[in-house]
């Protein structure tokens, strides 16, 4: 991928994980034309299952799909309360990783969402609104070659 050499995503993700003590950090990016521009998980940290490797994310489906489609950050403080236990199977990563409290931000390039960064805890209501806001600040306006549109807009 372009620009990946110049920026160490894993290192940056590890920095975020250590700073906030996240249980899970995952980065999904749009693949090259050879892979039909599929949206797939590229790096994950703290994963306890390899299920994510098999998954091709779809626009509008699941947490990442939702963020990818809307381009807006999404915070779920308590998965059980907000998503409901019944339809949780529509969020395979959340189920496989046992995430209870998580948030995701969209990563832009040339005015288009090119990736999604998902962070979360396996404890209910651990990722609060303040915590999520701070996370967005720590990420800063850019993440590698991507930028966080909200920050630019402000």
């Amino acid at each position: 991928m372009n620009g990946q050499e110049n920026f160490n995503y894993q290192q940056e993700m590890a920095r975020l994980r250590d700073h906030f003590d996240f249980d899970f950090v995952g980065l999904a990016l749009v693949q090259s034309i050879e892979s039909r521009f599929e949206l797939k998980w590229v790096f994950t940290m703290g994963n306890r299952s390899n299920r994510y490797r098999r998954i091709v994310l779809q626009t509008g489906k699941g947490i990442v799909g939702h963020v990818f489609k809307t381009g807006k950050p999404l915070l779920v403080e308590d998965a059980e309360k907000i998503l409901g236990g019944k339809d949780l199977y529509n969020y395979p990563i959340i189920v496989a990783e046992g995430l209870k409290s998580f948030g995701a931000i969209a990563l832009y390039e040339y005015n288009r969402v090119k990736g999604v960064l998902l962070v979360g805890y396996r404890t209910e209501e651990k990722l609060t609104l303040e915590c999520f806001t701070e996370f967005k600040q720590v990420v800063g306006p850019t993440f590698g070659q991507f930028y966080n549109k909200e920050m630019v807009g402000n």
Binding site: V30, I33, R36, F37, E38, L39, Q58, Y110, R112
Partner: peptide
């Protein structure tokens, strides 16, 4: 060309959908 390529990506995903 860059813009075209992006649109191509969106259309391909739409087709898949």
């Amino acid at each position: 060309l860059k813009k075209v390529q992006q649109t191509e990506g969106s259309l391909m995903r739409l087709l898949d959908d």
